[in-house]
Write a protein that binds this DNA or RNA. Sequence first.
DNA 1: AACGTCCGCAACCGCCTATTG
DNA 2: GCAATAGGCGGTTGCGGACGT
Length: 180
Amino acid sequence: KLDDDLLRHEEEAAEEIRRGPWTVEEDLTLVNYIADHGDGRWNSLARAAGLKRTGKSCRLRWLNYLRPDVKRGNFTADEQLLILDLHSRWGNRWSKIAQHLPGRTDNEIKNYWRTRVQKHAKQLNCDANSTKFKDAMKYLWMPRLADHHLQQASTVGDHLVPGLPTAYMESSDLSGWVQG
DNA sequence: AACGTCCGCAACCGCCTATTG
DNA sequence: GCAATAGGCGGTTGCGGACGT
């Protein structure tokens, strides 16, 4: 492992492979190159475009950020519902889930799940994959999200979820679930 | 004002599979 | 047919900004 790291760093020094955040210049280079030549064949693309990055890094930057049809910003209530639903069916199959949300990336969905959803599971003192949490989503959060989506201002307070701490249910609002 | 800590996100890594030569 | 290279995926990390003390 240590040897691998040493080797990798030697290679980086020799070949000047950049890592970490992308600069605006790099972004422009990548976008312009793809506009002229298309994407794919990422390693040769990186070389041909003169980017001192791995092909993988270029691919990731393009797919998750630079692609013109990539949607950014908050998930809509619709999208959040869909994520909850698809995740309950498929688990952490992020790219499969992403295929059902046009313009959203697996990375973004994964981040959303880990930051927002897992946080609530933790507050409930349970695992995000537990029956308890799935019940909470199914009978509490999904209805609330759906109601919010339908722009019904009044709260839905009568969804009872066995085993959930009532204090949590009463104190919780939609912040952290419904964005924007 | 200065310091700590929390949180969200972009980007990385390792592993596995697919493609290529 | 196989070894090497590339692509795809899921998990993890670390940076920077927000927030609290």
